[in-house]
């Protein structure tokens, strides 16, 4: 059996150099923005200068991270927020991250199912992104995608993380405002506590408040919040807000809280601290990635060291230093 696929050689587009895409990105061309995000994801060397140029035009957008366990209602909430922000005249950008299969490297990116109507009616830019093996709740190129959207004039830019488990809180150092979403009835405890992400929230939202078990979750969370202090060095009071994305109830209150937090960051000067921590984390993260890439490229050298470590003629620390081209003294 064969597929019906007559060949049509001449129809296809050629590679547009990334430098030529930059002006179109800056003027907000959806095609150019979308292509530039793909180039960042693929890590084309050819695109690095263009991305550097784009970065110079960023720093305007309010970046909002939404995190919570799978099924909490993140995608549905993002759809509701798109509408709420758009009705205030905002041009909303979204990057929604889902995991890649560790077996095939492929992925099914399903967040868009819930957002497509909102994206269409509000002219929001929604991009689905697979983790491609990156841990921490984001994809490696998530923040570059945010850069591209920022430079193209989108704000706010909402990041939906992979459903978090322990340690998957990279978004904390990626966004200005962190919304932790908990769903009622997903077990006795509040999932945010289990996942160890209670403290990272600037705003706690409880989804599905159209359901009768929601008030208990809200009460439990409010109880927890009175126990501990907020972020060190900040006088922001973390609110606990019930929302229903389905009925639309209280979504605008959540939107207002997100805006209030942004104002707070700017008025208090905390924005500067967040920007510094985002910058630091991005440098560290990229450095680590570049090293990993280098090690993976120099397979032969790596193998030699692995062999030496396995046969106990060299210890792992020395091997690591040799790979880095550093002297042993660094360890001292």
């Amino acid at each position: 059996m064969t597929a019906f696929a007559p060949s049509r050689p001449a129809r296809r587009a050629a590679y547009v150099p990334s430098a030529e895409l930059v002006p179109d990105v800056l003027s907000g061309s959806v095609l150019a923005v979308a292509r530039m995000i793909s180039r960042a994801e693929s890590g084309y060397a050819e695109a690095s200068e263009a991305l550097a140029e784009i970065y110079r035009h960023t720093g305007k957008a309010h970046v909002v991270g939404i995190t919570g366990v799978p099924g909490a209602g993140k995608s549905t909430l993002v759809a509701a927020l798109i509408k709420a922000f758009a009705s205030d005249g905002h041009k909303v950008g979204v990057v929604a991250v889902d995991p890649s299969s560790p077996f095939s490297g492929g992925a099914i990116l399903g967040d868009r199912v819930r957002m497509s109507d909102a994206a269409q009616s509000c002219q929001a830019f929604v991009r689905s992104m697979a983790t491609r093996g990156h841990l921490g709740g984001l994809a490696r190129a998530t923040l570059q995608a945010v850069d591209v959207l920022d430079a193209a004039g989108y704000s706010p830019i909402i990041i939906e993380t992979v459903g978090v488990g322990q340690d998957e809180v990279e978004v904390v150092t990626a966004a200005h405002t962190i919304v932790v979403l908990s769903a009622p009835g997903l077990g006795d405890d509040i999932q945010a506590i289990k996942a160890g992400i209670l403290e990272i929230a600037d705003i706690h939202a409880v989804s599905k408040c159209d359901r009768s078990d929601a008030p208990a979750t809200v009460a439990a969370l409010r109880g927890m919040m009175t126990l501990g202090p907020g972020r060190p060095g900040s006088d922001w009071q973390t609110p606990v807000l019930p929302v229903s994305s389905v009925s639309g109830e209280r979504v605008s209150e959540l939107k207002d809280a997100i805006c209030r937090h942004w104002d707070h960051l700017r008025d208090s000067g905390e924005l500067h601290d967040r920007e510094r921590s985002i910058g630091r984390t991005r440098i560290f993260g990229t450095a680590r990635q570049l090293l990993q890439d280098k090690f993976k490229r120099d397979v032969a050298e790596l193998d030699t060291h692995v062999q030496a470590v396995v046969s106990r003629t060299m210890d792992p620390s020395v091997a690591a230093c040799l790979l880095l081209g550093w002297d042993n003294e660094v360890l001292a």
């Binding site: 890649s100 095939s104 492929g106 990116l109 199912v113 697979a130």
Partner: peptide, 9 residues
């Protein structure tokens, strides 16, 4: 997906 592609639904 199982063939290594990224699928948006």
């Amino acid at each position: 997906r199982d063939a290594g592609m990224e699928v948006v639904y």
